[in-house]
Design a binder for these strands. Structure first.
Lengths: 207, 207, 207, 207
DNA sequence: TATGAATGAGAATTCATTCAT
DNA sequence: TATGAATGAATTCTCATTCAT
């Protein structure tokens, strides 16, 4: 019986690949790019070191890939939330909610984006910059639309978008660090939404 | 200005030490903790590698020390600005101005604080957390005072403080990355102040 | 032609084996022992890596085997040419012709013998030495016969034999490297024969 | 006393460098490029592995350098012998003598050139080809001069030069392998010279 | 027979750190 | 004080080889 490929083997391989990637996300998220050794990753995934190189070309490529995938995932979640609502408050709430959901369901994902900062993988800088830029642009689009509808005060929407990105990151980072994260969750979302509305200069009664 | 030994005398003796610390700040700020080698630092300072270990116990200790000193410096600048004013708008403007000034006069200081993120020196996490905490507390103090005076809307001042810290960092990071940083400077300060006032829910006419 | 199992039957069974051996010769000849990986060989032969180890015990054994087979093949061709003629010039011409033929029909065979030099497979040294020794002995036999017949000048035939082996290898190597190898072929054979005759001190008119 | 550089230190460093290079030549000569590990080299030189990389950028660069140096040395010895004589027999004798001398005083040098064959360092091919080419050209120059003076028979001097290079290498290789190398030395030189004269078709009595 | 996922020993290279001078 | 040669632990990555299917 000459070894059936693309049968169950295929699925098993994919499963292992995925398992290794998840292990890698965890290790990277916890230790950062440099401190995380390939040995850390394979021992987390409980495979031999050669297996790593069977699935991935090298540590840096994997990290970049993971970062990109992760960034795209979060970006998509937030973008989707912004696009599928029309009023600015609704957009803000949906986006914040989406971000918080991801942060709670996949904390490692968010951690990875945070550790993927300066001084990580040598070739990550541009990728990181692109990701931040896209995030900022998504927010700015929503702000511009609100501005046109005169729902928010006149302002430099680019800067407000930057501020929102930075502010939400910081708050979520602290939220995840907090021991009572789960209980604070709802309040935190409400706080962030109100804060965002204020920061954007939302005009409550457009009479 | 940070890293000037203690005060005035023994300037000659510390000349080399100071040179190395400044070199280290530059190199760390540019490359991040891991990518910056001790060789990079000593060659930037134009001394031999042995000299490094005469003045400092090791790379990590130096980095932590530098981070702490640098963090204290920025913290002090912002704190001072917040303390020496009484109205919230004045505080905000002074603090933002102070931050921007430091960012322009000593960009490496700010860079260092940014690269000193997750996954830098293994033992930095707590130190970094402390620094951020202090920064947040400083802002929160100002917000609480304003809240008591009913100059800002009721809110969770802790979260607003976190947001301010994250927002300003993000904006200043982009400002420093911009090629026309110098020209945008004044406008950026104004934007940040207005943004801060809005985010804090500043009540314009407390009649 | 080397590496055709034994003779005639079990052709089907050995088809894969043969394909792999031919692939191996090509790859070894092109890259040398160390640089040639088992993966290179199986991918050239279009089989899986496990198949390699079903047919051969390991890389080194295969290389040694191939070298031996290849050496025996060339040796036999040259030996045959030397034995089946009686006059020294005829022997020389036939042997050179045979060598050149092999070099053109099976360049990989010759390449393999050349790359199988020092520093190839750890255990190859003796085998290589044996092969060279046999080649030298074959030539020496012919020289001794000619010497007895007083067709060549008195000389240390061992050294002349060594010289012939080294000289022909070098010339054929350059010939194969040359882009116009095919055109030069006839002239090269003539040159080598004349050279051999001179080197052996062939006495033209033993009147 | 702040460490006097360029004093004795300099000399010591150069001495060590040289010692390491000699150790490397020995190891490379014995094992070939691939089988020789950096660990082999440093243990032969009795230093730590880091020391290797303090003196040399990497294994391949060192090998190439060694090969080139070694090749230049032998080439120069032979070239010099060929140039400083006028009659072809004198040139031949001087060159052979020079080669044999090098082979006996610095056997590793010659070994290195021999192991530096195909399949050695990836980047060595061209260098090796250049070296062989120069050697061949040197012999061809001598042959051409002799041909002009009608001291040798008409012939393709390029091929004769290739033959001489290959023949001498082979003979010297066997000579070095022989246990009674030293005793055979003089006879071997005489044999090689006579062989060379015959191979070149030297015309004894140019009356 | 045939496959290819999995293994792990071993090689090259880096870099923080030490120490004789 | 200052130097820089020397060290070796630690890391990344390769590749021959095994083995369950």
């Amino acid at each position: 019986m000459p070894y059936r490929s693309t049968d169950k083997t295929r699925q098993k391989k994919d499963a292992k690949r995925t398992a290794m990637m998840q292990a890698a996300v965890r290790v990277f998220a916890q230790k950062g790019y440099h401190a995380a050794t390939v040995r850390d990753i394979v021992s987390e995934a409980d495979v031999a070191i050669g297996t790593f190189y069977f699935y991935f070309p090298d540590k840096e490529t994997l990290f970049n890939h993971l970062f990109e995938e992760t960034a795209a995932f979060l970006l998509q979640a937030i973008d989707q939330a912004l696009i599928s609502r029309s009023s600015f408050p609704a957009q803000l709430e949906a986006a914040v909610q989406a971000y918080v959901n991801v942060a709670f369901y996949e904390p490692a994902v968010v951690q990875l984006l945070l550790v993927g900062g300066m001084g990580s993988a040598p070739s990550l800088s541009e990728r990181r910059a692109e990701y931040r830029e896209k995030l900022i642009r998504a927010w700015q689009r929503a702000l511009n639309a609100a501005l046109e509808r005169q729902q928010i005060e006149p302002q430099n929407t680019r800067r407000t978008a930057e501020a929102l990105v930075g502010a939400l990151d910081e708050i979520i980072f602290h939220l995840l660090s907090s021991p009572q994260a789960e209980q604070e969750r709802t309040a935190a979302v409400r706080d962030m939404v109100q804060l965002g509305l204020r920061a954007a200069g939302y005009l409550y009664a457009p009479s």
